[in-house]
Amino acid sequence: MYGKVLICDPVDSVLREKLSDKFEIDYNPEISAQDLLNVIGNYDVVVVRSRTKITRDVISRAKKLKIIARAGIGVDNIDTDYAEEKHIKVVYAPGSSTESVVEITLAMMVIGARSLFKGIENTKKNNFTKLKGIELEGKTLGILGFGRIGKAIVDAAKVFKMNFIAYDPMPVEYPEYVKKVSLEELLQNSDVISINVTMRKDSPYILNDPELAKLKEGVIIVNTSRARAINGKDMLKYLKNGKISAFVSDVFWNEPAKEDYELEMLSMDNVMITPHLGAQTKEAQKRIAIMTADNIINEW
């Protein structure tokens, strides 16, 4: 056996199957933060998804730890700087859930454009009042964060015959059918904005009040990446006055919500929040598990 692996969150069984002949595995998908602190010193590898946080305190107690594996596409729940300082490898699974995130993003765009969430809520109360929406055809889709997922969203959204603009602070390639713009131009000209950014846990907000004030009237915002991309307290004002006609998001600042602005937002007719469903497909979870297991074996 190579060493001991602790799996802290639910993962597809294929991950354990691929590692079982090389590692001793403890599967504890509901481990508490305190229990993790108590036992982490016994393990060479720890596997997490988004629920479990690998903090400085956890790493400080991880005397044997060689690899931190994130079974997902981001590492904002891991103190990567301290892990690097301690010479611990951090691996993740980029691209493994692209298809699933693209599909839910397009679904959210349609939901926001047609007020489907309010319509469903009404009919469950036997209220069949018709709600008027907009068509996506001919509208401008702005992609904030033009990486792998942003590019895939554009390719999938071609079916809607939209116009495409994109902003990314990093030097990335733009196909001829996507116009490269500044952040200000994206905010001013997008009818729909899809947020697809990667952020560290201490990254500042990208969209604060000065940026949100530049939004096009009636814009729909879809976020399937990181809640910290937007200052929620600042955004509430623009949801109330209608400048943002719909906010459909798979991420939230606190989960469950606890701040007053979050609770108020959840009660609004033009807001729909889902609980991190972007990668929650059988296919994506299997790809994530396979890539995570391969990462661990390769890095060992």
Rank of each mutant, 00 (worst) to 15 (best):
6 L>T: 10
53 K>S: 05
24 E>V: 08
44 D>H: 09
92 Y>V: 01
10 P>D: 10
60 S>N: 15
94 P>Y: 12
62 A>W: 00
25 I>W: 01
95 G>F: 05
30 E>D: 15
44 D>R: 05
60 S>P: 01
18 K>E: 14
89 K>T: 09
56 R>T: 08
51 R>C: 09
78 I>W: 01
14 V>S: 14
55 T>Y: 00
25 I>L: 08
53 K>L: 03
75 V>N: 03
85 E>I: 05
27 Y>A: 14
10 P>G: 10
88 I>D: 09
81 D>G: 07
16 R>I: 13
26 D>E: 15
14 V>L: 13
91 V>E: 03
40 I>A: 06
75 V>Y: 00
69 A>Y: 01
25 I>F: 02
94 P>S: 15
25 I>T: 08
22 K>N: 10
47 V>C: 14
88 I>P: 01
84 E>P: 03
59 I>H: 04
85 E>R: 12
20 S>G: 01
16 R>A: 12
61 R>Y: 03
34 Q>G: 06
60 S>C: 06
72 G>N: 08
29 P>Q: 13
28 N>L: 15
93 A>C: 15
44 D>Y: 01
67 I>L: 02
6 L>S: 11
45 V>M: 02
78 I>D: 08
19 L>P: 02
22 K>D: 10
11 V>N: 12
24 E>F: 02
33 A>D: 14
41 G>A: 08
26 D>Y: 03
68 I>H: 01
59 I>F: 02
20 S>L: 02
28 N>Y: 11
64 K>Q: 10
62 A>I: 04
80 T>G: 03
19 L>A: 07
30 E>Q: 14
10 P>M: 09
86 K>C: 13
21 D>S: 15
50 S>M: 12
57 D>N: 05
91 V>M: 03
